[in-house]
Design a binder for these strands. Structure first.
Lengths: 153, 153
DNA sequence: GTAATTCCTCAAGCTTAATTGAGGTCAAGG
DNA sequence: CCTTGACCTCAATTAAGCTTGAGGAATTAC
């Protein structure tokens, strides 16, 4: 046997390849693995090898982070993906639906804040009870009854 | 002189009073002071005393934090307020204007992200070059030339 | 006058999302 | 064979925004 199958051509990826291809640091991949967001198996020499779908997973992690979702929450969402098979388009779509309502809520909140900003900072009403900017409970208003601003979705 | 003017009735506030009235921890007020976001003077016994406008300042700090603005940036904004007199409605309004464009940019970004979410996570396009979700440079598009989504302000 | 609060300072700890470095191993090319 | 370069683990460090605790002083309440 003069030569093994060359790993460069196999569909398994090393940590450095994954890092280069999706533009994250190797240390970040180690970190994501330690937090349970991605999985790898090891070669005989204890090096990580990833299946191709890790590229998609990490891409999704980066997108979710831009949405402001913490890693722990991203991990939970990723854990809803099937483990027994490679996730398909429909699986990924479910993820994005999950986050879309979250995103809509956040957009709504920021929009509310913006719309009250001048009004409330300019005036003297910055009290927790009366001011829509200060009231920490308008979180509730987002999911509970009451008026909705923008994108009731 | 049977009794000093009672500090409770004076317009000066102790750190605990401020904390209770605006719903933050005393330690947070200490922290804001150490970071230069608020000022106090001291009694003969070295205790902090605040002018009334600290209530407004801290309320504004909390609102700005809900907008996602880091304390260092909030401090810079607060430093544009006049020191020689108590800030008036117009001074505060300038602050809110400063943050509004910031806010609009953030809302725009989140909205873009949302609009591409299904499309891009569902499909196979999550590459840094081609995908609007993955492209880290669409930050530039917000301040540079090119199409604008929502609220060109 | 004394007990209960409240306040003071300073240092250390917490969380998130990583990065950096030390010390050592693995793999590939010449 | 031997030198790079990529990889390994583990511990420490970073930054933001605070909180917690220790040890002690000031203020208020009775």
């Amino acid at each position: 046997m003069p030569e093994k199958i060359r790993p460069r051509i196999s569909r398994e990826l090393s940590v450095g390849e994954v890092a280069r291809r999706i533009g994250v640091a190797v240390s970040a991949l180690h970190f994501y693995e330690s937090k349970g967001l991605i999985l790898s198996h090891r070669t005989a020499g204890n090096q990580r090898r990833y299946g191709r779908d890790v590229l998609r997973r990490v891409a999704v992690i980066k997108v979710a982070q831009r949405l402001g979702i913490p890693l722990a929450t991203i991990r939970e969402a990723l854990n809803t993906l099937p483990e027994e098979r490679t996730p398909n388009a429909s699986d990924w779509r479910k993820l994005s639906e999950h986050w879309r309502s979250d995103l809509n809520a956040r957009i709504r909140k920021l929009t509310q804040l913006r719309d009250h900003l001048d009004e409330c900072i300019g005036c003297g009403c910055l009290s927790v009870e009366s001011c829509p900017l200060r009231n920490p409970f308008d979180e509730l208003a987002e999911t509970g009854p009451g008026p909705r601003l923008l994108d009731p979705d």
